[in-house]
Amino acid sequence: HNLTITQGKLFFHYNPKLCLSEIHKMEEVSGTKGRQERNDIALKTNGDQASCENELLKFSYIRTSFDKILLRWEPYWPPDFRDLLGFMLFYKEAPYQNVTEFDGQDACGSNSWTVVDIDPPLRSNDPKSQNHPGWLMRGLKPWTQYAIFVKTLVTFSDERRTYGAKSDIIYVQTDATNPSVPLDPISVSNSSSQIILKWKPPSDPNGNITHYLVFWERQAEDSELFELDYCLKGLKLPSRTWSPPFESEDSQKHNQSEYEDSAGECCSCPKTDSQILKELEESSFRKTFEDYLHNVVFVPRKTSSGTGAEDPRPSRKRRSLGDVGNVTVAVPTVAAFPNTSSTSVPTSPEEHRPFEKVVNKESLVISGLRHFTGYRIELQACNQDTPEERCSVAAYVSARTMPEAKADDIVGPVTHEIFENNVVHLMWQEPKEPNGLIVLYEVSYRRYGDEELHLCVSRKHFALERGCRLRGLSPGNYSVRIRATSLAGNGSWTEPTYFYVTDYLDVPSNIA
């Protein structure tokens, strides 16, 4: 807008934040220059609390790290170098490059900038070799853009010569660093050979998330399962459950009422301010606690030095998902009996873990797994792929695949051998790939016309006998059925096997 004052003059007093240069501009645009008398524009009460600059400061050096910015700028000295009290560095987070010096300023003089007072450097006698002032900004957020400017702080001049310097606002972004852990990993099994893994992005990506790394490792069953005799009275049979499938998407929606109208769909109840505040506090606490764990609990591995020492970490090797089922080394339970199943799973520490690289999504279907087997899954978020990966501390989750139908069934015939004193040795093959492992066998036998009897055969007993022995049988026709019990439950009964026990007292003698 054009402003013209045809008559009258300007009068400025007691404006401590208004620089004289701005008042002189007002004289020019209003056409009143030359009308004012000496005392109409006070030299001592206008701009006496402001830094009124008329020179431009330029930054000469900028260096960044993930949490620091090192700045240096060209030296500046007023005509009387004693008038320079120091520099004021202003900075704040700036997602967009549209910041002005006066953003967030209120009537009390406060604003949204963080201000650092910096002492002037030592003055050199040689004007050509003056030290460049600077400042190291610490405690910054990774991968965050900051708006920065600097200006001088000078003393009051009796001659009211307006001098000083100020830089333009520059924008500097800190470097990326390792992201925080992925949030809320959930693993479920939808079949006997697959596990579905879902997660949420890290709360602090500290860069642009480029991919996720998912490692999985087959877990050995508890050692007590191999040692305890679950045929003993009072000892509860062990059981394991597989990871249940995901709930429906509708039930997972946030901010939804727990109660549904019987007449149909209901609208979600909005969260109160107290609920939102509580969630923010919980989120802040979780982030602080995660940072504490990362800094205190997890110790970084030592990389190899120039002395030739090897990095103890196993090298990563990509495998196809079809090879995942046989990740671990199978060892027989008892070496003397080769027909026992290889369900003991000690994992070799030198073995390469299978892994998958996930790009542009937060889910993965891990296939080719062994049925009813526990897996430990390790999830890392990465925001750099080359020249070397920059990934987060791992988040861990466990899951067990679903049982395989008929995996616990005894394959092959049940054979028998009759000894003296009416002892019958029953023999059968253990299931080759049971659900988890076989903890015991149930032997059901009966003599024709009598009630059915049951015998429990422990895992250890089966390994020693290759089956079991029935003792003290009365003469007669017998039928026997056997079924295995694994961590997933009972298998199917075998087809009945028949044998006849004679009275050993009636056996004919070869003595003449």
Results as ranks from 00 to 15, higher is better:
Ser203Phe: 10
Ser203Cys: 12
Ser203Glu: 07
Asp204Ser: 15
Asn206Ser: 04
Gly207Cys: 01
Gly207Trp: 00
Asn208Lys: 15
Asn208Arg: 13
Asn208Cys: 14
Ile209Cys: 14
Ile209Lys: 15
Thr210Ile: 15
His211Leu: 04
Tyr212Ala: 04
Leu213Met: 08
Val214Ser: 04
Val214Trp: 01
Phe215Asp: 12
Glu217Ser: 06
Glu217Arg: 15
Glu217Asp: 10
Gln219Thr: 03
Ala220Lys: 08
Asp222His: 15
Ser223Trp: 12
Ser223Tyr: 09
Ser223Pro: 14
Leu225Cys: 02
Leu225Asp: 14
Leu225Phe: 02
Glu227Tyr: 06
Leu228Phe: 08
Leu228Arg: 10
Tyr230Arg: 04
Tyr230His: 02
Lys233Pro: 15
Gly234Arg: 06
Leu235Ile: 14
Lys236Asn: 11
Ser239Leu: 15
Ser239Ala: 09
Ser239Glu: 09
Pro244Met: 15
Pro245Val: 11
Pro245Ala: 11
Pro245Glu: 09
Phe246Trp: 13
Phe246Gln: 12
Phe246Pro: 11
Glu247Thr: 08
Glu247Gln: 11
Glu247Gly: 08
Glu249Ile: 09
Glu249Ala: 07
Glu249Ser: 06
Asp250Ala: 08
Ser251Arg: 07
Gln252Arg: 10
Gln252Val: 13
His254Ile: 06
His254Trp: 08
Asn255Tyr: 05
Gln256Leu: 11
Glu258Arg: 06
Asp261Lys: 10
Asp261Met: 09
Asp261Thr: 12
Ala263Pro: 12
Ala263Glu: 13
Gly264Ser: 07
Glu265Arg: 11
Glu265Asp: 14
Cys266Tyr: 12
Cys267Leu: 03
Cys269Ala: 06
Lys271Val: 03
Lys271Asp: 06
Lys271Phe: 05
Thr272Gln: 04
Ser274Glu: 05
Ser274Lys: 11
Gln275Glu: 03
Ile276Leu: 06
Ile276Ala: 07
Leu277Asn: 11
Leu277Cys: 03
Lys278Glu: 03
Lys278Pro: 06
Leu280Val: 11
Leu280Arg: 09
Glu281Val: 06
Glu281Met: 05
Glu282Tyr: 04
Ser283Thr: 14
Ser284Arg: 07
Ser284Asn: 03
Phe285Asn: 03
Arg286Ser: 02
Arg286Trp: 02
Lys287Met: 05
Asp291Val: 02
Asp291Ser: 01
Tyr292Glu: 04
Tyr292Gly: 00
Tyr292Pro: 02
Leu293Pro: 01
His294Arg: 01
Asn295Leu: 03
Asn295Ser: 04
Val296Glu: 05
Val296Met: 12
Val296Cys: 15
Val296Gly: 05
Val297Asn: 01
Phe298Asp: 14
Val299Trp: 01
Pro300Leu: 02
Lys302Val: 07
Ser305Asn: 15
Gly306Ala: 08
Gly306Asp: 12
Thr307Glu: 12
Thr307Tyr: 08
Ala309Phe: 02
Ala309Glu: 09
Asp311Lys: 09
Ser315Gly: 14
Ser315Ala: 13
Arg316Thr: 11
Lys317Ala: 09
Lys317Thr: 08
Lys317Asp: 06
Arg318Gly: 03
Arg318Glu: 11
Ser320Phe: 13
Ser320Asp: 11
Gly322Glu: 08
Gly322Trp: 11
Gly322Leu: 12
Asp323Val: 06
Asp323Tyr: 11
Val324Thr: 05
Val327Ser: 12
Thr328Phe: 14
Thr328Ser: 13
Val329Asp: 15
Pro332Ser: 12
Val334His: 09
Ala335Gly: 09
Ala336Gly: 07
Phe337Arg: 13
Phe337Asn: 08
Asn339His: 12
Asn339Pro: 10
Thr340Arg: 07
Thr340Leu: 10
Ser342Cys: 11
Ser342Trp: 13
Thr343Asp: 07
Ser344Thr: 11
Ser344Ile: 05
Ser344Lys: 12
Pro346Thr: 13
Thr347Lys: 07
Thr347Ile: 14
Thr347Pro: 08
Ser348Thr: 05
Pro349Met: 12
Glu350Ile: 05
Glu351Tyr: 15
Glu351Ala: 10
His352Phe: 14
Arg353Pro: 14
Pro354Asn: 13
Pro354Phe: 10
Pro354Val: 10
Phe355Glu: 10
Phe355Pro: 11
Lys357Arg: 09
Val358Lys: 15
Val359Trp: 08
Asn360Val: 13
Glu362Asp: 15
Glu362Lys: 09
Val365Ser: 11
Ile366Tyr: 04
Ile366Lys: 09
Ser367Leu: 10
Leu369Thr: 08
Leu369Met: 09
Arg370Ile: 13
Arg370Val: 15
His371Asn: 05
Phe372Gly: 04
Phe372Cys: 15
Thr373Cys: 03
Tyr375Asn: 00
Arg376Phe: 15
Ile377Trp: 03
Ile377Pro: 03
Leu379Tyr: 03
Leu379Lys: 00
Gln380Gly: 06
Gln380Glu: 15
Gln380Leu: 13
Asn383Lys: 00
Gln384Trp: 13
Gln384Glu: 12
Glu389Tyr: 09
Glu389Met: 15
Arg390Met: 06
Arg390Gln: 13
Val393Leu: 02
Ala394Cys: 08
Ala394Gln: 13
Ala395Asn: 06
Ala395Gln: 14
Tyr396Arg: 08
Tyr396His: 15
Val397Phe: 15
Val397Met: 15
Ala399Ser: 12
Arg400Asp: 01
Arg400Ile: 07
Thr401His: 00
Thr401Arg: 01
Met402Asn: 02
Met402Tyr: 12
Pro403Ile: 05
Pro403Gln: 04
Glu404Gly: 12
Glu404Asp: 08
Lys406Val: 11
Ala407Trp: 05
Ala407Phe: 11
Asp408Leu: 03
Asp409Gln: 09
His416Arg: 06
His416Val: 08
Ile418Asn: 13
Ile418Lys: 07
Phe419Arg: 15
Glu420Leu: 09
Asn421Tyr: 11
Asn421Arg: 14
Asn422Ser: 12
Asn422Arg: 13
Val423Asp: 13
Val424Lys: 03
Val424Gly: 03
His425Gly: 08
Met427Gln: 05
Met427Lys: 10
Trp428Tyr: 05
Pro431Arg: 01
Lys432Gly: 04
Glu433Trp: 13
Glu433Tyr: 08
Asn435Phe: 04
Leu437Asp: 15
Leu437Trp: 15
Leu437Asn: 11
Leu437His: 03
Ile438Trp: 03
Leu440Ser: 02
Leu440Asn: 00
Tyr441Gly: 03
Glu442Lys: 10
Glu442Phe: 15
Arg446Leu: 12
Gly449Asp: 10
Gly449Ser: 12
Glu451Met: 14
Glu451Gln: 14
Leu453Arg: 04
Leu453Thr: 07
Leu453Gly: 05
Leu455Trp: 08
Leu455Met: 13
Leu455His: 12
Cys456Leu: 06
Val457Gly: 02
Val457His: 00
Val457Glu: 01
Ser458Thr: 07
Arg459His: 15
His461Val: 13
Phe462Glu: 02
Phe462Lys: 08
Leu464Arg: 14
Glu465His: 14
Arg466Cys: 10
Cys468His: 06
Arg469Trp: 06
Arg469Leu: 08
Arg469Glu: 07
Leu470Trp: 04
Leu470Tyr: 02
Arg471Ala: 12
Arg471Pro: 08
Gly472Leu: 08
Gly472Glu: 08
Ser474Leu: 13
Ser474His: 07
Ser474Phe: 10
Pro475Trp: 10
Gly476Asn: 00
Asn477Tyr: 15
Asn477Ala: 13
Val480Leu: 07
Val480Pro: 02
Arg481Leu: 09
Ile482Tyr: 01
Ile482Phe: 02
Arg483Gly: 01
Arg483Ala: 04
Ala484Leu: 05
Thr485Lys: 09
Thr485Asn: 03
Leu487Trp: 12
Leu487Met: 05
Asn490His: 14
Asn490Asp: 04
Asn490Thr: 14
Thr494Val: 11
Glu495Ala: 09
Pro496Lys: 15
Pro496Leu: 07
Pro496Cys: 14
Thr497Asn: 07
Tyr498Ser: 07
Phe499Glu: 09
Val501Thr: 05
Val501Gly: 01
Val501Asp: 06
Thr502Phe: 13
Thr502Asp: 02
Asp503Ser: 14
Leu505Pro: 09
Leu505Cys: 11
Leu505Gln: 10
Asp506Glu: 04
Asp506Cys: 14
Pro508Val: 12
